[in-house]
């Protein structure tokens, strides 16, 4: 088999196995072609920058949901890492690279704390992360009482503008490279398989020798890591740190649903939720371009989500009965 045929059969296999994501990409491309907003006032790079923090949050939420949990504290963790990055960068502007690495480590550490608490308290994930939502939001306020701090130039440079030809926004490249570097090797590793295993059948995974508790903690650590990337993206795009959590919890859960990740765990990937975020972003840009009030466009986005989840659930129901 030559390389081209191999690649073609790989794509075909992937498309068959992941029809939902393929459908999302088709919708995105259609929206992109028929959207005037992106070519006149609001470039694709603006869309990519605005979506970057949410896209990282969606990737993080996807990992923990695949493992059978949910992280309600993701918005607070983003706020916490955002203010830590902004205040450290304001104090030590010359140490920007170590600071960024440190913030990523803090994100993973915060996620680990969430995971350990879920495992040792035996309280449902949703309750633990609900309580931690308050704790991390409070911690963010401790770090920075009011919006402030600053960013570093290179953080902004790698995420703004386009690369090469006009069509490829840098923020999109950063997103795909970072998520790909972490997720593609992980998915093929033993840990990745274990994350899917404990999500789809916890007891079955345990009896097959998967270290359920360790895997769960690792999934939360990864979510914390992606949340810290979201926080860094906030620092890069706003240039400051804001201690109040944004609407990222809601958006990340919305992206999970749009992206075809099952809330029951064990199914889905990271590409779907990310494409879902871009579709939500493009719809928002369209509505703004059409001169719609922001309040009204929130209603429309909500209605679209309600319709999508209902149709999605209905199709699943039909398939199960068939």
């Amino acid at each position: 088999m030559n390389g081209l045929a191999g690649a073609r059969s790989f794509v075909a296999r992937w498309a068959r196995g992941d029809t939902w994501t393929v459908g999302l990409i088709v919708i995105f491309v259609l929206l992109f072609i028929f959207t005037k907003a992106l070519r006149s006032t609001y470039g694709l790079d603006a869309l990519a920058i605005a979506s970057l923090p949410v896209a990282f949050a969606a990737a993080g939420q996807a990992i923990v949901v695949i493992s059978g949990g949910i992280d309600l504290s993701i918005g607070s963790v983003m706020a916490l890492t955002n203010v830590i990055a902004a205040s450290l960068l304001a104090t030590y502007p010359e140490l920007s690279v170590p600071v960024v690495i440190l913030v990523m480590l803090i994100g993973a550490l915060v996620g680990t704390v969430n995971g350990v608490l879920v495992v040792i308290s035996r309280v449902p994930d949703i309750v633990v992360t609900l309580a931690m939502l308050f704790v991390w939001a409070g911690a963010a306020l401790l770090v920075l009482g009011t919006p402030g701090g600053s960013s570093t130039p290179w953080l902004r440079e790698i995420t703004t503008g386009t690369l090469g030809i006009e069509l490829v926004p840098r923020a999109l490249v950063v997103l795909l490279v970072v998520v790909g570097l972490v997720w593609i090797p992980l998915r093929r590793s033993r840990l990745g398989l274990s994350i899917y295993a404990i999500g789809s059948n916890r007891l079955g995974a345990f009896r097959s020798g998967v270290h359920v508790e360790g895997t769960k903690i690792a999934a939360y650590a990864l979510t914390g890591f992606f949340a810290s990337l979201g926080g860094l993206a906030l620092t890069a795009s706003t240039g400051i740190g804001t201690p109040i959590p944004g609407p990222y919890l809601l958006l990340s859960v919305a992206a999970i649903v749009l992206g075809g990740v099952s809330l029951a765990g064990g199914r889905g990937g990271l590409l779907g939720p990310i494409v879902g975020i871009y579709i939500l972003g493009i719809i928002r840009a369209d509505l703004t371009f059409m001169g719609m009030e922001p309040a009204f466009s929130t209603v429309i986005q909500g209605v679209i989500m309600v319709i999508v989840v209902m149709v999605g659930a209905y199709l699943t129901l039909r398939r199960r009965e068939a």
Partner: peptide, 19 residues
């Protein structure tokens, strides 16, 4: 429609707060 309650009620709260 058998939508997950968490998702359904979060989506509706988006609609309500916008409305």
């Amino acid at each position: 429609f058998r939508v997950h309650p968490l998702i359904m009620t979060i989506s509706m709260s988006l609609v309500v707060s916008g409305a």
